[in-house]
């Protein structure tokens, strides 16, 4: 390498390296250290070892946050996956105007979470929202949605699915487009029916994309925050409190920096564990042609 090159390397790399070190790397290390302390920012931090991590085991709010996150996942992932798949297959048809519909379904994806949450909070309003009015046309009395602790999470999931389904559609569409017409035609000639073609050919060939969607949706589900913050603020009576919201509250409402950091590392750990399981399952189940 020429000496002159070295000077260039520095200038090309320096800006990125600076923001990486100051705003990503150091905060990460620092967050890890803070997680072993008791610190309210105003006074000096007190070393508590694993205290914060141990406290989490007996923290009812933490447990509830984890449980609610799983409740969210159980409803959200099948809906965005199956719904997204159905939409991808629809917009993959070669018919007039299909490009228009495809773009159209993507509109909620580009809108901000805050706006989407507010839109849905309006729709779900039990007194003058559209949804309960619509249900009343069929003689159904809608629930109190976000004000009912049994229905609040369902409401949050509805808004989330509405916003994200266009996103999973696009990811799955990429997989659908890779399946060659010849394979499907060959199967047809061999007498395979529509369902058989779907389950024996389309699904296996799309397994990499399906896994990717499940993985991304899972990671995003663990980090749910904006919609909960705006739609329910964790309520009613803590019925929708989730992990990131607990982290935010502990840090910025209760000034418990150490506890909040410890929680964020547990969040990372959960994400890593699930990614690992996914990865193992993927190696076993995914069909790579």
């Amino acid at each position: 390498m020429k000496k002159k090159d070295r000077k260039y390397i520095f200038w090309f790399l320096a800006p990125s390296l600076a923001v990486f070190l100051i705003f990503q790397f150091i905060p990460m290390i620092w967050s890890f250290i803070i997680s072993f302390t008791d610190w309210n920012v105003r006074t000096l931090p007190k070393w508590v070892g694993l205290g914060n991590y141990i406290e989490m085991f007996s923290d009812k709010n933490f447990y509830e946050a984890v449980i609610h996150t799983f409740q969210f996942i159980i409803m959200y992932i099948p809906l965005v996956l199956i719904g997204g798949m159905m939409m991808a297959m629809l917009v993959n048809l070669k018919i007039k105007g299909i490009g228009f519909f495809r773009s159209f379904y993507f509109i909620p994806v580009v809108s901000s979470w805050v706006a989407v949450s507010l839109i849905w909070k309006g729709i779900l309003n039990p007194a003058y929202g559209y949804l309960n009015y619509f249900l009343s046309l069929f003689g159904i009395e809608g629930p109190q949605w976000l004000y009912d602790k049994n229905w609040a999470m369902v409401g949050v999931v509805m808004a989330s699915v509405w916003k994200d389904i266009g996103f999973t559609m696009v990811l799955l569409l990429g997989g659908l487009k890779n399946i060659s017409e010849e394979i499907l035609e060959a199967a047809q000639i061999d007498g395979a029916g529509r369902l058989k073609k779907f389950f024996k050919i389309t699904l296996p060939l799309m397994s990499p994309q399906i896994f990717f969607v499940v993985m991304i949706s899972m990671i995003n589900s663990f980090q749910v925050f904006d919609q909960v913050m705006v739609m329910t603020n964790g309520g009613p009576a803590g019925a929708t409190t989730v992990l990131v919201e607990q982290i935010y509250r502990n840090a910025f409402s209760y000034s418990r920096m150490g506890y909040a950091c410890a929680m964020s590392w547990i969040l990372l750990l959960i994400i890593l564990v699930f990614s690992f399981i996914q990865n193992r399952a993927e190696k076993k189940l995914v069909f790579y042609s």
Partner: peptide
Amino acid sequence: ATLMIPFQVTAIPLYLI
């Protein structure tokens, strides 16, 4: 590797910085 780290992990030290 930072792609795996959720923003929430660094948010608190970032705020302090």
